[in-house]
Amino acid sequence: MSFIKRYLLPRLLQYFLVIFVGITVVFIVPRLTPVDPVQEMINTITQRGAYMDPEAIEQLRQSMKEMYGLEGTVFSQYISLWRRLIIGDFGPSLSQFPTPVVKLIGISLPWTLGLMLVTTLLSWIIGNILGGIAGYFSSSRWSAAIERFMMVLRPIPYYIFALILLLVFGYVIPIFPIAGGTSIGLKIQFSWKVIADLLRHAILPALSMILLGMAGWFQTMRLVMSNIVREDYVMYARAGGLRDTKIAFNYVIKNAMLPQVTGLALSLGQIFGGAMVTEMVFSYPGIGGLLYTAINAGDYNLIMGITMFSILGIATGALLVDLLYPLFDPRIRYR
């Protein structure tokens, strides 16, 4: 199989190289920040009012370094990191010791995945359909109206837009809760009441992401469409007396979708990074907020765990695009 030898193997090699470099960078960068997780922990203990003499503090520091896996040179830490990563052990969280990092991520990931998978897919679908229609029937009054709406929506900074939604629908007209992923004290189980509660809490964060995301997809799709309707093959199909719907779907949209498919795969990969601003504004549980606290506390292991997921997500997304793209565009060949 020359396909495996000439295309798949080099591409997989590149995939693992990206992950390797990514993890190395993530290992180095937190160690360059001024935050020292051991000192952070000692500060927390002493702030609570416990008195400790310097000798006891030094002893505590030593034993904590040992527990956190921070003793030894940076290089030996790096080696032991890889030893642990290969067996899937990210170690304990430093700020919420001794909870394992994997468990913390496991709690947050379903929230992020649920929210972001739905919003990414919905905004992609709606944005492309509207953009496709507006691009194909660019002279109609409706297209101009939609386009103007998107033009206003798109440049609004996300955090301001999210805050406005929160103020309007959470405070001025209080129809949606202003914070959290569920009502306080709700036990997660499978019942209509719980699902309704989850949905009610998810609507505002989801709406903020869908609206702005959709406007972005709309504008790129609209632009691609307006170029493709002028292509020779579209003119030729028109000369052949093909029906408008046939031309729109088989000739224009099919070609315009190609770059959009790439975009979708890449943004699906980004899901694992979470939506930090959304989670902050709406106090929504998820990976983004977890990462934020981890960075503040200098929690090396947690940072490593979360970014590892994010790197894997994006690299896998790009790999899938490369492998699947020839299915959509016959001109692309594996080389």
Binding site: D232, Y236, N250, L258, P330
Partner: peptide, 21 residues
């Protein structure tokens, strides 16, 4: 009537056929 009664052979045949079908 297009194609049925009067048809057309275009100038730039390089790009008149839909590339993805």
């Amino acid at each position: 009537i297009r194609w049925e009664y009067i048809s057309y052979i275009p100038q730039g045949s390089m790009s008149v056929l839909n590339p993805v079908q």
